[in-house]
Write a protein that binds this DNA or RNA. Structure first.
Lengths: 220, 220
DNA sequence: TTATTGAATATTGGATCCAATATGGAATAT
DNA sequence: ATATTCCATATTGGATCCAATATTCAATAA
């Protein structure tokens, strides 16, 4: 017999499929802050019933990506300047620590994979691709630390601000500066300089924070 | 007309009530790692249907407190030594930073409230009360920093390890040492010494981590 | 003209039911 | 004795339906 087995207990439920799709739409800005999530509409879009949609929305709320009011429905979360500041503060504390721990254990494969992200980033002109590669680049390096809990927390924090950062890249023509900073981080990693990689990561994050806060303060 | 109004959109749904109760049971060790969460049974306990129970379990999974396998059900998450190490590492990075930021803004009210936690802690002999007061004490001080996102992350991290810490307090007769360390932290806050409060907080967390890892390694 | 009320519709939360899958044990085959 | 099959039951995921609440707009009152 020649077939590929599948562990059914690991297959994605309808709620998981809807959750992933909604999260991606929020992160990529296709669902904007304040936009209502109507259960019926989403159920029809995914050819499913409202029950898995409600579960998906409930999970998104747990991640802070939507806000729900009983009987009124859910809307995509916004991001105040204060919240943005806090999230970047947390990232500025955590991410340098993670990369500091990653550098001593950085494999050639991880460096090569991160380099590919840099190359793809400079060759692309699609803001969504920049956003994806930005996250891939950092995640590839951080993963070497083997700190899954930290990475989960960083991922959640990134989810909260990603749509704004992606918009920011476009508004500020910041992709070149971002990639320059990525290259510097990569070089510090390749050189095995954990302290430098940490310092550059912190500067990268606080720089992105300052740029984003300027934009948020202009708009709000 | 003399009556008290209530914002119905802010009332707790059945799912929220079940979520809070299950989370509390997990944290307090009444639901132990590996124990299955049967939807029907929980629905009967709370005199509700399976739909809000499923939402509650889904949210608990998002918080890492349970693990679900499709069609097989949910169980309370365990905690490996590695996960414990990571969670404490994250706390050891974040919490000193938060208290460092809290000390310059510490109000007399917060200090008084934290002091009450210390007094209640030393007067109690109930391990669950110790656990609650431990969290209250730290949260009262951290709150002064005004970093809600950080506090949410710390709360989630604490949720993951709380049942083990509470068990640890009992096994190791550690409540006296814990309160001594709390008193030292409180005094550093009262003296306005942010760096000392941060250092003591870090030591407090790494000490608790070492003690817990010793216990986990004995068991596993 | 403005405020209030009523009604229709939209939307949500939860109850109930059905289909799919997992589990466990008895019956059967080897 | 062990492996396999079958079947009944338990449990879960999702569909459908009902009750409760929110929203919007027309009708009415002031």
């Amino acid at each position: 017999m020649k077939l590929k087995s599948v562990d059914i207990s690991k297959t994605a439920s309808a709620a998981t499929i809807v959750f992933d799709a909604l999260r991606k739409a929020i992160i990529e800005g296709d669902l904007k802050e304040g936009e209502p999530l109507r259960q019926d509409e989403i159920a029809r879009m995914f050819n499913t019933s409202r029950i898995p949609v409600r579960e998906a929305i409930s999970r998104l709320e747990e991640q802070g990506l939507v806000k729900t009011q009983r009987y009124k429905g859910a809307v995509v979360s916004g991001l105040s300047a204060q919240e943005a500041q806090e999230i970047f503060d947390l990232r500025a504390v955590l991410e340098p620590e993670v990369i500091r721990r990653a550098v001593p254990r950085m494999s050639k494969e991880a460096l090569a994979q991160a380099k590919e992200c840099l190359v793809a980033f400079s060759q692309s002109s699609d803001p969504m691709t920049w956003g994806d590669l930005n996250r891939d680049f950092h995640a590839t390096l951080y993963r070497e630390a083997g700190l899954q809990y930290h990475m989960d927390v960083i991922d959640n924090a990134m989810d909260r601000v990603d749509s704004y950062l992606r918009a920011q890249l476009v508004l500020s023509n910041g992709s070149e500066r971002a990639n320059d900073e990525h290259i510097a981080i990569w070089e510090a990693c390749a050189a095995g300089d954990a302290d430098l990689a940490a310092a550059l990561t912190r500067e990268h994050i606080t720089g992105a924070c300052d740029a984003l806060l300027q934009t948020l303060n202009k708009l709000g």
